[in-house]
Amino acid sequence: EDTPTSDDLEQFAKQFKQRRIKLGFTQADVGLALGTLYGNVFSQTTICRFEALQLSFKNMCKLKPLLNKWLEEADSS
């Protein structure tokens, strides 16, 4: 899998936040949902820092596919 560039991550974080708000989920909701879906719960702080691009590049890269999958799930339900 290609490592995203920081531009990709920035773009995704922006879109993710917009979609999340549009779908009516809080950052805490997302963190809990990730726990339900993938077995690891993320704190509201982590989601907040992802959206604000304040996590390390490595952590951003790790979270992106999970959040992307969550968006697909949320969109289809």
Rank of each mutant, 00 (worst) to 15 (best):
V30L: 05
S43V: 02
E10W: 14
E10A: 13
L67T: 04
I47H: 02
F16I: 01
G24R: 04
F57P: 10
L9G: 02
E10R: 15
E72P: 02
W70I: 02
I47Q: 01
T46K: 04
P4N: 09
P65V: 10
G35F: 07
N68V: 15
T3L: 10
K69Q: 13
K14V: 08
S43I: 01
E10F: 15
V41R: 12
Q27V: 09
K62F: 08
A52L: 09
K17I: 04
L71C: 01
R49K: 14
I21K: 09
F16W: 02
L32K: 15
T5Y: 05
I47N: 01
A13C: 08
A74Y: 08
K17E: 04
V30E: 00
K22Y: 05
L67F: 04
T46G: 02
K17S: 05
P65S: 04
A33D: 05
T45R: 12
G35M: 07
E72M: 09
D2Q: 14
R20Y: 02
G24S: 02
T5Q: 10
E73C: 14
S77Y: 08
A33S: 09
Q18Y: 05
Q44C: 03
N59I: 15
T26A: 04
M60G: 03
K64N: 00
T5L: 11
A74W: 07
L63Q: 00
V41D: 14
E51A: 00
L67K: 02
A13T: 06
Q54C: 06
K14G: 06
S76Q: 14
D7V: 13
T5S: 12
R49T: 04
Y38Q: 08
Q27L: 07
L37N: 09
Q15D: 12
G35C: 09
F42N: 03
T46R: 04
A33M: 10
T45K: 14
Q27G: 04
R20D: 00
E72Q: 13
Q11S: 11
L23I: 03
T36F: 05
A33K: 06
I47W: 01
S6K: 15
D8G: 11
D8C: 09
W70K: 01
A52M: 10
K22Q: 12
G24E: 02
F42Q: 15
S6R: 15
T26W: 00
L9F: 12
L23N: 06
D29G: 06
K14S: 10
L9S: 03
L63P: 00
L23R: 06
F25G: 00
T3I: 15
L55H: 06
P4W: 15
F57H: 12
K22V: 05
A13E: 02
Q27Y: 15
D2Y: 11
T3W: 07
T5F: 09
T26D: 02
L53H: 12
D7I: 05
F57G: 06
L37A: 12
K14I: 06
K62H: 08
L55F: 05
R20Q: 00
C61P: 01
Q18W: 04
Q54G: 06
K22L: 11
L53T: 08
L66I: 10
F12A: 05
E73P: 04
L37T: 14
F50K: 02
D29A: 06
F25L: 10
L23W: 04
K17G: 02
V30Y: 02
D2V: 07
D75Q: 14
Q27F: 04
S56P: 14
F12P: 00
R49F: 02
K62W: 07
T46L: 09
L23E: 03
E73H: 06
Q18V: 08
F25H: 06
P4M: 15
S76C: 10
L34M: 11
N40W: 05
Q27R: 07
S56Y: 02
F50Q: 02
Q11I: 10
A13P: 01
K62Y: 06
K58E: 15
F12L: 01
E72S: 08
R19L: 05
P65E: 08
L66G: 03
G39N: 12
K22C: 11
G39F: 02
E72K: 09
Q44I: 06
N68P: 00
L71R: 04
K62D: 11
S43C: 11
E1R: 10
D7P: 08
D7E: 10
L37S: 09
R49D: 13
S56F: 00
N68H: 07
L23A: 07
T26L: 01
G24A: 02
Y38P: 04
R49S: 07
E72L: 13
S56K: 08
I21G: 03
L53D: 04
C61I: 10
F25W: 08
N68Q: 05
L63T: 03
L23D: 01
I21Q: 13
M60H: 04
L67W: 01
Q54E: 11
L34Q: 00
K62T: 10
T46V: 09
L37Q: 12
L66V: 10
N59E: 15
R20P: 00
E51W: 00
K58M: 09
Q44G: 13
L23F: 04
S43N: 13
Q54K: 14
R49N: 14
N59L: 14
C48P: 09
Q15M: 14
L32M: 04
Q11A: 13
G31P: 02
M60V: 03
A52K: 10
D2N: 13
S43P: 09
Q54D: 11
Q11V: 12
F42R: 05
V30M: 02
N68L: 13
R20G: 00
S76D: 14
G39R: 06
K69Y: 15
C61N: 09
Q27K: 08
D75T: 12
T26G: 04
P65L: 04
Q15P: 00
Q54Y: 01
Q27N: 04
I21V: 10
R19W: 04
G31M: 05
L66A: 08
S6H: 15
T5A: 11
L23H: 06
T26M: 02
L71M: 15
A52Y: 03
T46P: 02
Q44V: 09
S76A: 14
R19V: 07
L53M: 13
A52F: 01
E51L: 00
F57K: 14
E1I: 10
Q44E: 15
E1S: 07
D75N: 11
L32N: 15
E10V: 14
Y38T: 14
F42G: 04
D2H: 13
S6C: 15
L9N: 04
K69M: 15
N59R: 15
R49V: 00
S76W: 07
A13G: 02
D75K: 10
E1Y: 07
D2L: 10
V30H: 03
